[in-house]
């Protein structure tokens, strides 16, 4: 029996789909059988981030409506035979699926796969409720800015209400800006949200490159963000991998003396 994890954030554009793709690829590279489920019905994007947009025949709504068998809708990754994508429908909307449908789908997928990673849509309405319904746990994504952190707090509250254990990925942290005092640090965000931190992903231009190419950055050894996702996957697998600490908030004299 596998494990289902929903990747959520409240706020859009903070890296849910990128995180889903990278975590899924990393887990598959560690030999786990993984299915990445695009829960963003009507606005699918996990397919294009994984570079599988040309292979879609059936989708999640087809599966739920029994227009095809589940296996027919699963797309095998080009590079990793352990990784599959269940794409979202682009022509339906969120109301095409119910939380019960998602529960049923996730339990079916958990029989076949070690990990079911669900990419949640932005917002806290129907699509969010659907994405949550079949999840055993949640990973909340935020960036160190005021609106994503505020929305993350709201989402964490809702997850607690649904009794879904959650951890946090702090995404797109700029070490330089934190050092300058112009961006909240990991400690600041932890203080505000009071939730276990699963990983810290630094701002990295390679993420844009990876999106352009449809090859998640986790495969790129020169991508700091990719390497961070690799460590996140190891932590999901129960390994004790430390979160590297970045030099933050050095005092003026310490900087001057190069300490």
């Amino acid at each position: 029996m596998g494990e289902s994890i929903v990747i959520t954030s409240g706020k859009g554009g903070v890296g849910k789909t990128t995180s889903t793709a990278n975590i899924s690829v990393a887990l598959a590279n560690f030999g786990k059988k993984v299915v990445a489920v695009d829960g963003d019905i009507g606005l699918r994007n996990l397919d294009i981030i994984l570079g599988l947009e040309n292979r879609i025949v059936y989708n999640l709504v087809d599966v739920v409506k029994k227009r095809c068998r589940t296996k027919q809708a699963l797309i095998r990754d080009k590079k990793n035979e352990n990784l599959f994508l269940l794409p979202a429908s682009q022509v339906d909307d969120k109301s095409a699926v119910t939380p019960e449908d998602m529960k049923e789908l996730c339990s079916e997928l958990k029989e076949e796969f070690d990990f079911v990673i669900i990419d949640c849509p932005a917002g806290i309405e129907q699509g969010f409720k659907n994405a949550l319904a079949g999840a055993d746990s949640a990973i909340v994504i935020t960036t160190p800015e005021v609106s994503p952190v505020r929305d993350a707090d709201r989402v964490i509250g809702l997850l607690q209400h649904h009794e879904i254990p959650a951890s946090l990925i702090l995404n797109r942290l700029s070490v330089q800006m934190v050092e300058r005092g112009d961006m909240m640090s990991r400690e600041d965000v932890e203080d505000i949200l009071a939730i276990k931190i699963l990983g810290l992903v630094v701002e990295d231009q390679e993420i844009v490159n990876a999106g352009n190419l449809g090859t998640p950055a986790v495969l790129n050894q020169n991508s700091p963000a990719g390497q961070a996702y690799l460590r996140i996957a190891q932590r999901i697998l129960g390994e004790n991998v430390e979160i590297p600490s970045f030099e933050e908030k050095k005092g003026f004299l310490a900087r001057l003396l190069g300490r």
């Binding site: 800015e145 005092g181 112009d182 640090s185």
Partner: peptide
Amino acid sequence: PSAKTAKERL
């Protein structure tokens, strides 16, 4: 620096 203000407001 603006991070302190961000944290206080949040």
